[in-house]
Design a protein around this nucleic acid. Sequence first.
DNA 1: CCTACCTACGTAATGTTATTACATAGGTCA
DNA 2: TGACCTATGTAATAACATTACGTAGGTAGG
Lengths: 133, 133
Amino acid sequence: MDQSTKLTKNQSLVLSQLQKATNPLSAYALLDQLRPHGFRAPLQVYRALEKLLETGVVHRLDSINAFMACSHGADHNHHHGVAVFAICETCNQVSEFADEGISERLAQWAKANGFHTTKTGIELRGQCASCTQ
Amino acid sequence: MDQSTKLTKNQSLVLSQLQKATNPLSAYALLDQLRPHGFRAPLQVYRALEKLLETGVVHRLDSINAFMACSHGADHNHHHGVAVFAICETCNQVSEFADEGISERLAQWAKANGFHTTKTGIELRGQCASCTQ
DNA sequence: CCTACCTACGTAATGTTATTACATAGGTCA
DNA sequence: TGACCTATGTAATAACATTACGTAGGTAGG
């Protein structure tokens, strides 16, 4: 029984829209796509996203103000390090990966400096392999 | 002869405002602070920031839509790795540091996946040592 | 010299992203 | 039943950023 069974109607709609998408979507893009389903105001999207971000099934990409479903599916076993997002500025596709080594370096700095980290965001911008010719 | 000697009036005003600040500032906060100096429109701030970001003397913090002067002063010899920003959500102060190990991990992934990185952003959110009681 | 061009700058309008405030609907439980 | 909690609906506004257009000053080539 995964988390998605607990989702409300609006949350499910937002999540499935993100899962269908090949690229990250902005909140207002989601709103437009969901108008046929009865969405009429930004808040409906933001409220759904808030919950989805909390549970980790959706990520927010700060550098482009957009949202994407977590690549790692229903099993959120990426305790294998911090998530890193590589955003292609040509095709807008995003690769998500996790790196234990980076996690460790950040944790070391945090410990050494008494910083208590609650959230980590790592975003690479550039060109993906397909778009680099 | 450092880069700042090439700055225009508006660029100098924005930079010195950021250097005086103890926290990151939003573009509109800068605008308000610079009104006494003749600033009247957002674009004046954004244009100055654009140049300052290009030359690296100012950083943008994507997760809070704010800008700060580079901690590393005039000598931009932080080819010692990617910059990491640790943002305290209580006092809003930011620690900037560089980590060669993280750079290497990211470079390895990029090489292995044919991703050509043009910009890297790493931001930690949490509580700094002073604010953790 | 002057004109074509380039860069910086000024101003207004608009576009995009996100939040606050307040009202409504439905379920749970004492 | 009625107090409470969660989800939702709607409107208005705040916060962040860009586009479009016009002006001023310098300078390189004719």
